Amino acid sequence: MGCDGGTIPKRHELVKGPKKVEKVDKNAELIARWSYCALSQEKLRRPIVACELGRLYNKDAVIEYLLDKSAERPNTEVVVHVRGIKDVKELNLTDNPAWEGERANSKGDRYEDLHCAMFICPVVGLEMNGKHKFCYLHTCGCVFSERALREVKTEICHKCGDPFQDDDIMVLNGNKEEVERLQQRMEERRARAKVAKKSKKNKAAETVSKPEDTKENPAPPKAGSSEPKAAAENGEDGGSSGPGLSSSSSSSSSKLSRPIAAGGGKRSIQEMAEKSEIYKSLFTSHSTAKRTKEQTSNWVTHTPYHF
């Protein structure tokens, strides 16, 4: 308790007061959000994807999570809303020419700028380091600063030229209110997609049911279609109709009989006289494709024809 050896204890050494609240370093927080993956806590590297809530991930980390959700990983609560790879968008980022990489200050003999980011806005040139608000387009994945979208108002992407709407603008690493707004828009978008998918299924079922109804209740034959048959029968029965009429009736009867013969029985390709020998050799029924017993093997493959 002190007082030994001439030491005098002070009040803060004897009385324990309330603990001081530890303040988070803002620079460290910005670096963690804009330079590291929100799921694996590794440094961001291409390809980089973003979810509908504006969080940044490494694409390989998201794929590993989707392949095995049962594995124990930290920070899995940030990707609960990601159901598949379609729920994330690969970002089209613009490299910062002033970025020298991680090994630029390996010796430690010069000033290291912590706010120097890997990517910049292609329109205004602002660095994507957390000091400025950045957004990405849900349609094409291009990333811009909010200042560029506010000052240069357009309905076409500045980088790739794809059209977009105001609902397609997603804020990256937004505050609590912006995340809640993005989550509400995400739920509305998924509800609309679910309704559209259900209506598409109903339309497909209706189109399938219509041909079945027509098969059960076939339409009566038209009057015009029976006239050539009647004329052909009259021409065959009456020989006094003349040579012109008899030839026309015979040609019409042959035309009518061709589809019936073709549909009645199937002919082998090797029996078709109009086909060439080279064409017939392309099929396995040709004599060149057949093998003798000496050429066959004991083992079995997925197809018995191998040369």
Rank of each mutant, 00 (worst) to 15 (best):
K153F: 01
E64C: 03
K197D: 11
E72N: 11
G244E: 15
I278V: 09
P97H: 13
S251Y: 01
E180I: 12
K201A: 15
P47N: 02
K153N: 06
Q184M: 11
I169T: 00
L44N: 02
L39K: 07
M118L: 09
Y111R: 10
E102P: 06
C51K: 13
T214R: 14
I260A: 15
G125R: 03
C121K: 09
D213W: 14
K176I: 15
K89P: 01
P304C: 10
S268V: 02
T94R: 04
V79T: 03
E127N: 09
V195E: 15
L66S: 00
D109M: 07
Y65A: 04
P47R: 08
T207Q: 15
D87S: 04
R11Q: 12
E52C: 09
P220M: 02
E216S: 07
T76S: 04
P304K: 09
S226I: 13
K86H: 14
V88S: 07
K200A: 14
I269C: 04
S199D: 13
A273L: 10
L53F: 04
P243R: 14
H12F: 08
C160Q: 05
V24C: 02
H12G: 09
V79Q: 04
A196Q: 12
E180L: 12
K16Y: 05
A261Y: 11
A230E: 09
K293Q: 12
V80T: 10
P97F: 08
L282A: 04
S268T: 08
S246A: 12
R192Q: 10
A191S: 13
R185E: 10
E13P: 01
D237Y: 06
A273C: 03
N202H: 14
K107Q: 10
K133N: 06
S145P: 01
I85M: 15
T292G: 13
A148W: 05
E72Y: 01
R103P: 00
M118E: 14
L245H: 02
R110P: 00
L172M: 08
P47E: 03
K16N: 08
G242V: 03
H115V: 02
M272F: 05
K255Y: 07
L53D: 05
E151D: 10
K280D: 01
G264N: 12
G263A: 15
I120N: 13
H306D: 08
F144S: 10
K280A: 00
Y305S: 03
S70Y: 04
R103C: 09
H132T: 05
A262Y: 11
L66Y: 01
V208N: 08
I31S: 05
R103E: 14
K10N: 06
I169R: 00
C135G: 01
D167H: 07
G235W: 03
K16V: 09
K159N: 08
K159M: 12
